[in-house]
Design a protein around this nucleic acid. Sequence first.
RNA 1: GGGCGGGUAGCUCAGGUGGCUAGAGCGACAGCCUUACAAGCUGUAGGCCACAGGUUCAAGUCCUGUCCCGCCUACCA
Length: 885
Amino acid sequence: MTSLPKIYDPQEIEGKWYQFWLSNNYFHAESTSDKSPYAIVIPPPNITGSLHIGHALDNTLQDCLIRWHRMKGHNTLWMPGTDHAGIVTELIMEQKLAEEGTSRNAIGREKFTERMWQWKDESAGYIVSQLQQLGCSCDWERERFTLDAGLSIAVRTAFVKLYNQGLIYRDTYMVNWCPNCHTAVSNLEVEPIEIDGNFYHIHYPVIDTDITLEIATTRPETMLGDTAVAVHPDDERYQHLIGKKVLLPLCDREITIIADEYVDTEFGTGALKVTPAHDVNDYEIGLRHDLEQRNIFTTDGHMNEDAGERYTGLSRWDCRKKVVEDLKNEGYLVKIVPHRHTVGHHDRCNTIVEPAISLQWFMNVRPLAERAIEATKKGEITFIPERETARFYHWMENIEPWPISRQRWWGHRLPIWYCNSCEEVTAAMDTPKKCKCGSTDFHQEEDVLDTWFSSGLWPFSTMGWPEETDELKTFYPTSVLVSGWDILFFWVARMIMLGLGCMDEVPFRHVYLHGLVADEKGQKMSKSKGNSIDPLETIEKYGTDAFRFALANVSTPIPYVALPEAQIESGRRFANKIWNAARFILMNLEKHPIPTTDTDDNEQVPLEVQWIQSRLNYTIKTTTDALENFRFHEVAHTLYAFLWHEFCDWYIEFAKQRLSNDEPKALWVAVDVLEQIMRLLHPLMPFITEEIWQQLPHGSQRNSSDEKASVTVAPWPTPSTENPTAEATMETLMKVIDNIRSIRGELNVPIGAAVDVHIQSPNAEIRERLETYLGHYLPAFTRVESITIAETLPKPPASAEAVIGELAIYIPLAGVIDLETEKTRLTKRHQQTVKDVAAAQKTLENPNFIERAPENVVAQKRDLLDRLLIEQGKLERSLSLLNTS
RNA sequence: GGGCGGGUAGCUCAGGUGGCUAGAGCGACAGCCUUACAAGCUGUAGGCCACAGGUUCAAGUCCUGUCCCGCCUACCA
């Protein structure tokens, strides 16, 4: 007897098989191959620590696609790696340093970078081990890191190329400044968050008059940097004041009242204080009117000397308090009105960003964005789900210059050199030898590039670009990119633009954007909310396959998918079900081994075998189709339903009966079907399928030795023809069995009691089928004493009845049957039938329906009505019999 | 302010191009340790498909409007 444990224990086998796959090199892709290529580059996880639930989903789906294509015989590459993730990683390191009582400035750039590399080495290894626990079949020999030497060359090459094309330039402009991180950030990195603030109404006295101009602001402290007040040129209230000056309270400065169309007369007081150095709109107004840009902040969000002596050194928030207090004391404050408004926060540290004028490096992405739009319109890239295409276009069409320099240390330093003797700026791969002016003295730009710049090159930098490598020739453009929709702009869009800019070709053919994992309340899971599921804990508790199955199972194409714990439990139960189906088959196989020589195949193939093979074909077709369309939930659902509710619930029960009749062929068919299911399930549940695959017999005539070695490299099943006749016949048989069970259940027939079954049917073919098979099948499902099948049959006294079209089932239950219960049961059935009849009649009585609906639809409806009418008549007769007895 | 997604069983969700009597998982209730599985088996209950119109022979599905929920975007101080 095989000593398979009754309960599937994932811990026992997962590590073993992963090592087995690695040692057989199954995950390795060839640089050149006759096979058609299939490639995915992993969205490189940040080296900030552990994988979260989003990674688990993202990588499960990728692995699913990768394993599927590997089985389809493609030269399959899953390129793994990690991202240096500039600002976040630095922030965490700074925290560590603070705990050690030091800081990045104290230890200096060189030491700091050293520490970062140390951390990277530990962290990347940890991430790899987690991906491996998830079962990810990446080509680990090719693992990359965005700061690798090779990728650094790619970054410099791309930068220099784009610089020489004039797309990268240096400029002074207003950017989002994070006073906490001391760096400029792009618009995407700024999260607008609604906060409860105030509208501060302030009097600005108009010079040489006794009137005052009332302005309203949410940021009173910025008045210290005001260099004008603006009103709308058509605003009758203020027209006469245009050109006059006001005295800026607290500052002892005079500023001019200007007219600008930007001002909204309806909003606030219709008079707008203008702070060109600290507000984007004011900046634009300032340029139009040639206003002074008066900077009053330090880079860390404090007030500088230009804010005035009494405020210098205060934080932004302390200064606001003091300004308001002073305004009040000096009689300038009119009122404070609560006002809810959105304020930009840096998404990495949650600090309120400060619009600031700053000298930065920018990339003019518009030309590349236009190419990206064009390429997408031509169908070179498709987005799944399709709605993402619109989001993509909208963003691309309204794209703004991308500030790419960051005042940080961890990342790619811009390959820009400044001559120390003249003004010359050079972009080059390395330090220039000699400047135009003859000097050999240069210094490199201190800033590093936005992390997303190097991530944007990922699909080709990982394959050795700018070298013309075999990998690039074979795998670029890659097949699909899998990611969450939340980084469509951050990353996906930039990869497309940079791919076009550097490779002249899009980086991937399909973009599959899956949903984000949410809890039961629809809240996105995140560590900070405390509602996240830890992948490793989950794997430990439920097993990887159960977890992966659950993730796929909830992956419907909606923006937020809920992953209740019950789903993962369901996955575990499913794994256990698979395990036990295999266990049953393997245990019985010891008693009935598959003969080495082919047995005589002339005999008739039993109905249940025709049926399960037909259903298997349907399953293969549906699963393949679902995978082709990235419908992972359908993959999961299809396989679950087939294995559990067709194979286990019915076929194995049939097979048990066959076995007890000493007909082992049914078991051997079960082996074949199970083997096919293992293939179909493998992309989703790699471990359990491998474990079972290894235990299943693979007779010499069944598979080649390669395929036998591992399900990882077994061919993906191809569907043959379906068998609708067998399916229809089996359906009738199953209905008969269901109805018998239902009668027994509803009338509380004791489990042990064997019953006589009388079946009456005018259809000779059905009778023949029932006679052939029911005797075989029925005992597998219920205790039965005798089966009588006839064309006409009187209803036995005190019997329960079920009606399936023109077929009737009677079960005599004298002594057991409670007439009232039976009456209730039949009445309920009758009522339902009457309702259905009425609905069908209504449709058929409509002449337009007969006229305009397709023939087959009309025919179907007629059949339905006929069947229902027969059932109704039978039920009515039985009910009247019950009433008179 | 614009745009997108969602509202179907107690809960989480399926229901490509309209057409079998609207489904699944979980949960609930009742009964079973039937020698693969109690992480199991069997049976039962539970739905005005958000609301109001419209198109159509036919609407959960398409159109219009309304109401909720969520999200993405936007320079109203």
